[in-house]
């Protein structure tokens, strides 16, 4: 199952956060995991709105017998991240933020991957837990 949410305004960001929470709750994730992912989505979606103007957030339920997995893909067609290593450093910001967004989001999730070029940026995140069955 997957859900694609367009990110154009701040209320879309709230909608994406809420949708992720709901999907994770249905899958069986606890509230701490829900908050981790919702916060990580918040960080990335804010970046999309700030630097690219708009983008999309796709929530994908990848669970199997052994593991519950939520994969989230955040994409945009903005200017891209010039220096990914620098962007992943704590305290680095080009936009007057705290500079904790990207590296913080990475720490909040189990898997984190960035691919960026001018005109297309794709960030993939996953939170996984052993299934309780």
């Amino acid at each position: 199952m997957s859900k694609r949410i367009p990110l154009q305004t701040e209320s879309d960001l709230l909608f994406a956060r809420q949708a992720a929470r709901e999907m994770m709750r249905e899958m069986g994730f606890g509230s701490a995991d829900q908050t981790r992912m919702a916060t990580a989505i918040s960080e990335l979606a804010r970046n999309v709105l700030k630097y690219a103007g708009e983008g999309t957030c796709t929530l994908i339920d990848e669970q199997d017998e052994r593991e519950m997995v939520l994969r989230v893909v955040v994409e945009d067609n903005g200017p891209g991240i010039t220096n990914i290593d620098q962007a992943m450093e704590d305290g680095f910001t080009t936009g007057n933020g705290l500079g904790a967004g990207l590296p913080g989001a990475k720490r909040l999730v189990n898997n984190f991957d960035i691919a960026s070029e001018p005109g297309y940026t794709k960030i993939t995140m996953e939170i996984r837990r052993h299934a309780n069955k």
């Binding site: 509230s31 705290l98 904790a100 913080g104 720490r107 909040l108």
Partner: peptide
């Protein structure tokens, strides 16, 4: 602060 929020803030590095 809820426990979830506290944990998330520390992880974020705020």
């Amino acid at each position: 602060f809820s426990p979830d929020v506290a944990q998330t803030l520390v992880t974020l590095g705020v």
